Simulated assay, not measured.
Amino acid sequence: MYDIFHKYLEEKITLTSEESERIRSFAILKKLRKRQYLLQEGDVWQYHAFITKGCVRTYSVDDKGNEHVIGFASENWWTGDRESLLSGNPSRFNIDALEDSEIILFTNANFELLCSEIPAFNNLINTILQRSFVVAQNRIEAALSYTAEEKYLNFVNKYPGFATRIPQSMIASYLGMTPETLSRIRSQITRK
């Protein structure tokens, strides 16, 4: 499991063998079964999590019991609740596995130590955070200005594997539409 993370790092940055071993020494390996929680609402998130296998979703549940999907993450993606991590406040979100998954966890203290000790690792994390900000900006813009069909097509183009891997009801929730609307859009697209 760690070898996948190591390969990911090698593709992105150059590390000495000592730096690589230092990162490995802090890695916590976690396996999740399908539908098992990585984080539950009300718990404080304390990790940086990298997915080596599988797929997870981050979501909230409103007062009426409706789920609102915030995002998905699969192999070679980072996940977690940054707000809870930075504030120390209980999370408003749940993260659960959509498939059997394998995840590398780093406690926040150890992660920050790695960032301070290994400049290349710190630069990688900063680049990821910057890209995440851009992705969030683009998602907000799409939510505010795209039609339902444009939202779906944008999703499929950006994340081609997700359309067949993730239940349609969860994709609909992520896009801010009902499953019926998504089904209608998919049918219209197929007929074109």
Results as ranks from 00 to 15, higher is better:
108 N>C: 09
81 D>C: 04
58 T>P: 00
68 H>T: 14
49 A>S: 15
40 Q>K: 15
43 D>Y: 10
114 L>M: 11
110 N>Y: 06
59 Y>C: 05
83 E>A: 13
49 A>W: 02
115 C>I: 11
78 W>V: 03
86 L>C: 09
40 Q>M: 12
108 N>M: 06
74 S>Q: 11
92 R>L: 15
90 P>Y: 07
103 I>N: 00
112 E>I: 13
102 E>W: 01
112 E>M: 13
121 F>Y: 13
111 F>N: 10
53 K>F: 05
107 T>K: 06
61 V>R: 14
104 I>L: 06
108 N>V: 06
42 G>H: 13
43 D>M: 12
116 S>W: 14
121 F>C: 04
108 N>D: 13
116 S>A: 13
126 N>W: 11
109 A>G: 12
95 I>P: 00
51 I>N: 00
81 D>W: 01
107 T>Q: 07
95 I>C: 00
49 A>L: 03
94 N>M: 06
74 S>K: 10
61 V>C: 07
69 V>D: 02
111 F>S: 10
124 L>I: 03
50 F>K: 01
49 A>N: 02
108 N>T: 10
78 W>R: 02
116 S>L: 14
63 D>A: 14
55 C>H: 02
62 D>H: 09
79 T>V: 11
68 H>R: 12
48 H>P: 06
122 N>D: 15
114 L>H: 09
72 F>G: 03
47 Y>M: 04
73 A>V: 03
53 K>G: 01
47 Y>I: 01
80 G>W: 00
84 S>H: 04
110 N>L: 05
39 L>I: 05
93 F>Q: 06
55 C>F: 04
64 K>H: 11
61 V>E: 13
87 S>A: 13
89 N>I: 09
88 G>K: 07
112 E>Q: 15
75 E>N: 08
82 R>N: 11
83 E>Q: 14
124 L>Q: 02
98 L>Y: 03
109 A>T: 15
125 I>W: 14
45 W>V: 05
72 F>N: 00
70 I>Y: 11
58 T>S: 14
76 N>R: 14
82 R>M: 15
100 D>N: 09
104 I>S: 03
113 L>H: 09
111 F>Y: 13
85 L>F: 02
47 Y>E: 07
60 S>L: 07
103 I>V: 08
85 L>N: 11
122 N>F: 09
91 S>W: 00
122 N>Y: 11
67 E>V: 08
61 V>W: 12
88 G>Q: 06
74 S>C: 11
42 G>Y: 08
113 L>R: 08
104 I>P: 02
75 E>A: 09
50 F>R: 03
79 T>C: 12
117 E>V: 07
85 L>A: 13
67 E>T: 14
43 D>I: 06
74 S>V: 06
119 P>F: 06
82 R>V: 12
113 L>F: 10
63 D>R: 14
105 L>R: 07
43 D>V: 02
54 G>K: 00
45 W>K: 03
105 L>Q: 05
127 T>K: 12
118 I>H: 07
118 I>Y: 09
126 N>T: 10
71 G>W: 00
124 L>C: 07
103 I>F: 01
43 D>Q: 15
